[in-house]
């Protein structure tokens, strides 16, 4: 099959993540901090979708939660 075949189709397996664009930016940031095979993003699809490797789904969820927790502030319970 030549590279110039106009009917060529490429298929890749993964997990399609649907999220808001802020969360997606965090995912891209997390991915940028990783190297080589540790990277999880297969394809940055659009503003609200990203395709990642399926084995990393749970890891991505927890690291996103951690990242979000860093940016939430509770009212001081003593108040």
């Amino acid at each position: 099959m030549s590279y110039h075949d106009p009917y060529q189709v490429k298929a890749s397996n993964g997990t399609l993540i649907t999220c808001d664009s802020a969360a997606k930016q965090i995912l891209i940031h997390l991915d940028a901090q990783r190297d080589g095979p540790q990277k999880f993003i297969i394809r940055d699809v659009d503003d609200t979708h990203v395709l990642i490797k399926s084995i990393y789904v749970d890891m991505v969820r927890t690291s996103l939660q951690e990242e979000l927790e860093k940016n939430t502030y509770d009212q001081d319970p003593a108040l």
Partner: peptide
Amino acid sequence: KERNRLGAQESVMFEFFSREL
């Protein structure tokens, strides 16, 4: 909403060159 910010579904991505196909 904060709890499920990510919706995940196993998926296969197909990339096309031809609009028709």
